[in-house]
């Protein structure tokens, strides 16, 4: 586990490069736990089925890619401060998928459909941020309200009819190279982009500062309103993009498309080591968290657990992670 290449980030440059310090540095990374859990779950699946299958891992990674996008969208909002969650996320995902499939700007004009869908995501983010910043409504209430409004849009657009996107876009997302799917590559690229935005730009640094201590950030000249706008727009765009990918890759849409992504997105963020009170994020961690959740689900199916036991175990995984993180952060104080 102690490969020097993994820990070669900015933080450890100043330290002396002994194997022990690298090991310690690695263990401090919040997502290492999730990575180890993912590997263990993969080995467990191998044990159950009798073969350690790369294609099983990649199939689960493809599905985890969708969840990771939802998780990252949620994470951008969680980062902005204590108690901030985006409950409109599943509705943005579903509405985005419908906008993509409805052919509002012509069924063959895929770039325009994608652009329109992303615009919808931006609009959802702007409305959320406006409610929170201008009217001082708590994020949970504001995003829930936006979600309900979006749901009525979903019902309306659904009766207008929709059809499969298909074509080159679908073929590209379903393209498989040794089991590595096109849609997984697209999801990974998106995550890299978001990771860059959150860790290497002024916006990202200020967002984290705001989440860690709002008052200190304000005194330091950080403008809360604009940052919240950025966080919610980022969340909306990512959710809409997820809607696009799901609609095209899965070949169909339904009104409950996004439903599983509300709890799933929060769970992936938590397991990935992001602090739920804001200020600390990890895109890699969220991706790992999504992979853990997906693999755990598959393992439980392979182990032929009853559905009740499956829910209990999945809930316990999230709960145990939160407890572990709470204990660890108390130790540090």
């Amino acid at each position: 586990m102690t490969q020097p290449t993994i820990s070669s980030d900015g933080n450890s440059l100043s330290r002396s490069w002994t194997l022990a310090s690298i090991g310690r540095g690695l263990l401090k990374r919040s997502w290492v736990g999730a990575l180890i859990a993912a590997i263990l779950l993969w080995l467990l699946a191998g044990l159950v089925t009798g073969t350690l299958s790369i294609s099983f891992l990649l199939a689960n990674a493809t599905i985890a890619g969708f969840l990771a996008l939802a998780g990252t969208a949620q994470m951008a909002v969680i980062a902005s401060g204590p108690g901030n969650f985006d409950l409109s996320l599943p509705y943005v995902v579903t509405f985005g998928a419908y906008v993509m499939s409805a052919g509002l700007v012509g069924h063959d004009n895929i770039p325009a459909s994608v652009a329109l869908t992303l615009l919808v995501g931006i609009a959802a983010g702007v409305v959320n941020a406006a409610l929170i910043v201008r009217l001082r409504i708590p994020a949970i209430v504001a995003t829930l309200a936006t979600g309900y409004i979006l749901y009525s849009f979903i019902v309306a657009i659904q009766s207008g009819g929709f059809s499969r996107v298909g074509g080159l876009f679908e073929a590209a997302l379903r393209l498989r190279f040794f089991g590595f799917s096109g849609v997984l590559a697209v999801a990974a690229l998106t995550l890299v982009g978001v990771g860059f935005l959150l860790s290497r730009t002024v916006f990202g640094v200020q967002l984290h500062a705001l989440g860690q201590n709002g008052e200190a950030a304000r005194l330091a000249g950080v403008r809360r309103g604009w940052l919240l706008l950025g966080a919610f727009v980022l969340s909306g765009v990512l959710a809409a993009w997820l809607g696009v990918l799901l609609a095209v890759y899965q070949g169909g849409v339904s009104a409950d498309l996004g439903r599983s992504y509300l709890l799933g997105s929060v769970a992936a963020v938590v397991i990935g080591g992001t602090r739920t009170t804001g200020g600390v994020t990890s895109v890699i961690g969220t991706a790992m968290g999504a992979l853990v959740l997906t693999l755990a689900q598959s393992d439980l199916i392979l182990l032929q657990f009853s559905i009740g036991a499956q829910y209990i175990i999945q809930g316990s995984i999230v709960l145990a992670t939160v407890c572990f993180m709470a204990v660890r952060s108390r130790d540090r104080m």
């Binding site: 699946a45 089925t49 073969t51 299958s53 294609s55 099983f56 199939a59 689960n60 493809t62 599905i63 969708f66 089991g179 799901l246 899965q250 169909g252 339904s254 409950d256 498309l257 439903r259 599983s260 997906t294 689900q297 598959s298 199916i301 392979l302």
Partner: peptide, 15 residues
């Protein structure tokens, strides 16, 4: 749920 069904099947299909 069409989407959930597809994902659950896809995730265990290789096994």
């Amino acid at each position: 749920n069409q989407s959930v069904a597809q994902q659950r099947v896809a995730s265990i299909l290789p096994t």
